[in-house]
Design a protein around this nucleic acid. Structure first.
Lengths: 211, 211
DNA sequence: AACATATGTTAGAGACTCTTACTTTGACAA
DNA sequence: TTGTCAAAGTAAGAGTCTCTAACATATGTT
């Protein structure tokens, strides 16, 4: 069982590692053409197999995309953990760091990022996808609580984490959709993230409960 | 030239109002199946014409979707203007109102909402689309300036408007993508919008410049 | 009435998804 | 070593989709 290279013709009838290579080809194509213009055929061409081959490994096209989305979510989460390592616990710097990773990921891999969130139509009940997303959100909640000096997540932490998430999520989408051109809406990412972290976490809950 | 009904068979060879009915059928289908699973054929079936008919009115499938997106953006903008009428100028209530319209639109027509923003890949340079979006954003900027008691839009207004936009945009997407289930992240829309309006506009620029 | 134009239709090329039936290969038990 | 099975590939094709080309019909202008 030799490692079949991506482009060269393989010598053996069997491929050796087709599933992984199809996922990788799918990921690349999703970036190149966007999630909606991805075709299984093209992925097959790139992997050097017949168009029927993927169906030995995936139920259908959606499941190939799902695999890429899941891998993306795991990578995003890992990126966050890696970045967090560089900051002192319980500081706003860590909140900012998570936002930075979030937006950077979206900008670097807009196709996969879109997939990670746009797939909910068809995979809204997919446990693995949902749990991976929840885990990452839990990370943010824990960080907010930590800034408050607690290890227990309270409702206010959840609320603030949700505000942060909504903001970086919207920012990411606006960026990759080209709504924030430098001329019209200049965004110094680092400054904005710090600003928002202060407004949401740093300042506590200014006008939250009353009114 | 009689008004051809949508479903009944038409009597005349010519349709009468095909372009408009195709756009409407497209809009409905985009809601029913999502922007990526929309098919021209199905729209033709619904409009009661052959599959070649649309190409007398639209260059291709993308242009049909573009028409729906544009119509959506205009409708969103109009909704905002209508809602704004009910509030006193220069108050946070108007900021909240715009956010409410934004999120409501997304929830009511997630398909069209996705289209309005996801189309940038292929139509990023489309003047009409870009300008309509810019106009709506200008509305928010003006409102922020007005809260400051000015008719002139300054950089700080642009910045705050951008923060607001990012937030409601992210919130909208998270909602329609099912990431905010009532159990995990309960969101009282009205309360959240007021909270954010206070944090961003009401409180001025807490940690913006110096920090 | 004649003609140009706009707006339909039919037929079909080419691409795509996915299935069925067949083929090749590697692994393992005897 | 060899026979058998399951895994993983291929070829062929059904059915759908987008879009084009050639043709048909209605409308409005002169």
């Amino acid at each position: 069982m030799e490692n079949a290279p991506q482009t060269e013709k393989r010598t053996s009838y069997h491929h050796g590692d087709l599933r992984a290579q199809l996922v990788e080809a799918t990921r690349i194509l999703v970036e190149e053409k966007g999630p909606d213009h991805f075709s299984v055929s093209e992925a097959c061409r790139r992997a050097g197999v017949s168009t029927a081959a993927p169906y030995k490994h995936f139920k259908d096209k959606q499941e190939m995309l799902r695999a890429v989305a899941l891998e993306g979510m795991r990578r995003q989460r890992q990126d966050m953990l890696t970045e967090l390592d560089q900051y002192v616990p319980g500081t706003l710097g860590r909140i900012v760091a998570m936002g930075r990773v979030y937006v950077r990921f979206a900008v670097k891999e807009p196709g996969v990022f879109r997939l990670m969130f746009g797939l909910s139509d068809t995979h809204g009940d997919d446990c693995e996808l949902v749990e991976t997303g929840d885990d990452t959100f839990a990370l943010v909640q824990a960080e907010v609580a930590c800034c408050r000096g607690s290890n227990l997540i309270e409702d206010s932490d959840r609320h603030q984490a949700f505000l942060l998430w909504s903001f970086v999520h919207g920012l990411s989408f606006l960026k990759i959709d080209g709504k924030l051109t430098e001329a019209k809406v200049p965004v110094d990412l680092e400054a904005v993230l710090e600003d928002v972290a202060h407004r949401v976490v740093g300042a506590g809950s200014p006008g939250a409960p009353g009114r």
